[in-house]
Design a protein around this nucleic acid. Structure first.
Length: 592
RNA sequence: GCGCCGUUAGCUCAGCUGGAUAGAGUAUCUGACUACGAAUCAGAAGGUCGCAGGUUCGAAUCCUGCACGGCGCACCA
């Protein structure tokens, strides 16, 4: 029996590694598993299999650093009461320098307390790893593409796009930190009828500027920006397009306006720190291959046809997506010979996989969630089942003074994301969006966000960082508000690498270390769940940990050794804060 | 009619693969600056986790039904 048990033990621990669990959790888990195994071998625990200890962080810190409910979960199969099982397992837990105490509590929890020495070690890790602090390897260098924003280039970015931008970029950053090789991509829907409508809209405004009476069609875009683009063209080229053939004029205006909108998108996104590796034009999918070969769209359909998922009906060409769980089959080529948007999207996703991505993540607004099933079906039909993840971000409801602002491109009233950025700033906007989980709607009142900006949690976190920098300036004899020397240089001057960290055992100091120790797990969870909001929460917890420490522990004092140790701790916290903020794409100011 | 998301403190929201007395911010009340930044800290108060069943040692979490709000259900993009 012992051998089987050990084989199982190996299975369990290797499974933990495959999941990419963190080093500390692995170690604790292995410790408990060893104890369970020993208890079984000793005949004190009648179990057929070694259960997964599933160690977790207790919600209540007074319960220790790690806990396992394995005794309760094994009660039935062992035929013993949980507390008894816990006693048996605890009695087989071997001595370990990192474990300060083992306690049995409640209905049968086994709680483990880390020793101060184990906690102090994280300061070294944070300090030495610096910007790489919290890195985990769950990606194993695999390539993932994150596609987001992907706004139609027919108008300015709206506030919802701002949310996708913040989300996608933060996810990309977290995935990079978790060992994935990430590319950011923006899919430009520059083909199709909405582009023609766009061109016609600008053209119509241009004709008005030329003095003509134009009856405005219902489907045309009516935003003020259309008139602005038309005016720019009018001012540069006067009336020379007035007598042109309508089709030529609209096409020309469409392209002119397209370039402008694309530049607007790039400028706004870059302004908030979001830069894409690839801007992918939908048109390239429709273009014939060099030498007149089939287009990517035709290729995509051919690939599905070869796989046996294409059929013809009522003059149209269909994809049998119901084979992969979709509600109904979908048209790819309409009876009039035009391709549907979906056909192009299939070609696009085929292109993604042809580029060798191991995984593809799309961030879509909730208004597109009905599209998910067919897209996944298409990927599966192309032989890439399970490689596509679609993150659905719920919509942003914009308010101004409590009144809803519509976000349609076609209505005149619209607050662009650029305006929002101007009013609340990139840091606050990003943080505000990232703080909520993706499947939660956001009610964003501009005036409220402005008024509350002093109480905005992002400032709370940034203040912690600035405060640390201030302490370091103090230690270096600089003016507290000076910006002459940057924090990294101060650290070289002020932080002694050989400081005796064992001096740090006050409750507030240990609490801060515990926070730092959680970071790796948070990164792992945020990457696994594609949930940047876990990082904002952690950032606030870490900031709280520092502020509490600050209130209770004087850093710069007459005690040279204690000062050295606390400066070391504070500098480690500074680097960790900078690291979290970097993952969120938010700046870490050294003074505010 | 069908599908997806939401419903947790007055307000805005967390709550990891089911775990211990359901948390944080904010608002309200009470304290703390002759020391490194008070954009901070400490304390109090605040809850039938939308409703009703079910699953089990144990449910905010899983299952079923219902209610309310949002978004979708094209040979549109």
């Amino acid at each position: 029996m012992g051998r089987d048990v050990h084989a199982l033990y190996l299975l369990v621990t290797s499974a933990c590694r495959a999941r990419g669990s963190t080093a500390v959790r692995d170690a604790i888990s292995a410790l408990v598993t060893t104890a369970i195994t020993a208890a079984i071998d000793a005949g004190e625990l009648p179990l057929e299999q070694v259960p997964d200890p599933a160690v977790e962080r207790p919600r209540d810190p007074s319960h220790g650093d790690w806990a396992t409910s394995v005794a309760m979960r094994s009660a039935k199969s062992a035929g013993m009461n949980p507390r008894q099982i816990a006693e048996v397992i605890a009695s087989h837990l071997s001595e370990d320098a990192d474990i300060a105490a083992v306690e049995i509590a409640g209905p049968g929890f086994i709680n483990l307390r880390l020793s101060p020495m184990a906690l102090q070690r994280v300061l070294k890790e944070a300090s030495e790893a610096d910007r790489a602090f919290g890195r985990v390897d769950i990606g194993h260098g695999r390539r993932v593409q994150v596609e987001f924003v992907s706004a139609n280039p027919v108008g300015p970015m709206h506030v919802g796009h701002g949310r996708w931008a913040a989300l996608g970029d933060a996810m990309a950053r977290v995935l990079e930190h978790a060992g994935w090789k990430v590319e950011r991509e923006f899919y430009v829907n520059d083909a199709g009828v909405q582009m023609d409508i766009f061109g016609a809209s600008v053209s119509a405004r241009y004709l008005e500027l030329c003095g003509a009476e134009v009856e405005f069609a219902d489907e045309w875009y009516q935003g003020a920006y259309i008139t602005e683009i038309a005016r720019e063209i009018f001012e540069a080229e006067s009336t020379c397009w007035f007598d042109a053939a309508p089709h030529e004029r609209e096409q020309y205006f469409r392209e002119k306006a397209y370039v402008q909108v694309l530049e607007h998108l790039k400028r706004v996104l870059h302004g908030m720190g979001v830069d894409f590796d690839v801007w992918f034009s939908e048109r390239t999918l429709h273009a014939s291959a060099p030498g007149g070969g089939p287009s990517a769209v035709e290729d995509g359909i051919a690939a599905l046809r070869d796989a046996g998922y294409i059929f013809e009906l009522d003059g149209a060409t269909w994809f049998r997506s119901t084979d992969f769980g979709d509600d109904k089959d979908r048209v790819l080529v309409k009876a009039d010979g035009e391709y549907t948007y979906f056909a192009a999207d299939i070609a696009y996703h085929k292109n993604k996989f042809d580029r060798g991505f191991d995984r593809v993540i799309n961030i879509w607004g909730a208004d597109h969630h009905g599209y998910v099933a067919r897209m996944k079906a298409a990927c599966a039909a192309l032989g890439h089942e399970g490689k596509l993840d679609v993150v659905i971000g719920q919509l942003v409801n914009l308010f101004r003074n409590g009144e809803a602002v519509r976000m349609s491109k076609r209505t005149g009233e619209m607050v662009t994301f650029e305006e929002l950025l101007d009013e609340v700033g990139a840091d606050a906007a990003r943080y505000w969006f990232l703080r909520r989980s993706t499947d939660q709607q956001v009610d964003f009142d501009i005036e409220l966000a402005r008024q509350q900006s002093a109480d905005n949690p992002v400032f709370y976190v940034q203040y912690a960082h600035a405060r640390i920098c201030s302490i370091m300036r103090k230690a270096a004899g600089e003016a507290v508000s000076s910006t002459a020397v940057d924090a990294d240089s101060l650290a070289v001057e002020v932080v002694r690498p050989t400081a005796d960290l064992s001096l740090l055992d006050a409750p507030a100091e240990l609490a801060l270390m515990r926070r730092l120790g959680e970071f790796t797990e948070v990164v792992e969870a945020a990457a696994r769940d594609l949930a940047p909001n876990k990082l904002t929460r952690y950032a606030e917890d870490l900031a709280t940990g520092f502020h509490q420490f600050y209130t209770r522990c004087r850093v710069v004092s007459d005690d040279v050794e204690l000062t050295a140790a606390r400066l070391y701790a504070v500098d480690a916290a500074r680097r960790a804060l900078r690291c979290v903020l970097a993952l969120l794409g938010v700046s870490a100011p050294e003074s505010m």
